[in-house]
Design a binder for these strands. Sequence first.
DNA 1: GAGAAAAACAAACAGTTGTTTGGCAGATTA
DNA 2: TAATCTGCCAAACAACTGTTTGTTTTTCTC
Lengths: 196, 196
Amino acid sequence: MAVRRSHNRAQQLLDAAARQFGEKGLRACSVRELAGAVRMLPGSLYYHFPNKEALLVAVYAQGVKRISDAVLAAADRERDPWRRLEAACAAHLEALLGEGDYAQVVIRVRPADAPRAAARLTALRDSYDALFAGLVRALPLPARTDRRALRLMLLGALNWAQTWYRPGRNSPRRIARQFVRLLGERLRPAPRASER
Amino acid sequence: MAVRRSHNRAQQLLDAAARQFGEKGLRACSVRELAGAVRMLPGSLYYHFPNKEALLVAVYAQGVKRISDAVLAAADRERDPWRRLEAACAAHLEALLGEGDYAQVVIRVRPADAPRAAARLTALRDSYDALFAGLVRALPLPARTDRRALRLMLLGALNWAQTWYRPGRNSPRRIARQFVRLLGERLRPAPRASER
DNA sequence: GAGAAAAACAAACAGTTGTTTGGCAGATTA
DNA sequence: TAATCTGCCAAACAACTGTTTGTTTTTCTC
């Protein structure tokens, strides 16, 4: 539908920006590097985006969308709440620890790094958090359990993996499994025979 | 003992750098801002440190020392392994979520942000990690438990708190307690009467 | 109080930063 | 084919970056 006139390199620019922002952070990426990665001159970037922060916001928004879609799709392949959560975590980690994924930017770049866009970035993050809050809400837990703490703990542990993870050893899938198990060992009710 | 010539502004410089690096990260702090915070001209900084990265390394090293000392001291006030871990986590969080603490820099600044000093920073981080590894090693756990995963999960969850924590609501102490409990619910053996 | 050493200033360096401007080739439309 | 619009180039902008230099001020030692 959309009028795809000639060749528009905005998408390539977004991809390159996602990769670089995700790897090095906002401030470590110069406009020259961002544009140069798609063989464009720095000034040309401003035809597609009004400024550097706007480019970040675009990447960020796509990042939230992509990881949300992946997580939702993964969760919806399961029925048991605990397995839904585990599947979601695995999808989260896979997006986070892969290469050149938009989702990395959402975790890596802090809203405060882009002052003029901070509010929008925070809103985007929150919308993603809400998704996990839903998954946690569905867990059958002892009444006293603080679900907010559980969510913050799990998500924090996952996000921090960006810091120490090196590909090869443990797969994102396995890490997600381990983490959820560590949390759910007691809290999780004994699995029913029908689900084994 | 040490020859305290005049008033030592190197220390003030370190303090200011710790605060700024911790709040904004390495790249967001210019040498002018760092020096200006102690009413010094940018060039004067180079009398005390050969370059910006060396200043970071100095802050980083002090950060690791301070948080290590705090964590060790806290842990040594307890005897039960689980309570030692919880106390350590509380101390870790208090250093991390306070204001103007050197420890924040250690968590906030990634070694890769300072390429020429990356190796030294990583080594410093690792030495701190080893401390927690020791605490986890002392836990009485089911044989199959992956202690490395447990450590990475707990430490990641704690470190990520820097992202979402806002003072006032929950105290660092309470957060640490919640997180350790979430982990230990099943794994922790029933507390003996003598420790109640 | 003289001499030496320590600490800071003042001014510049070359390079990089994000951004703006005017123009130009090629595709699209009439 | 003429007119228009899209996408990008080329070149510059002022502001800022980390760092170096020579000189001056402050402090300590004798």
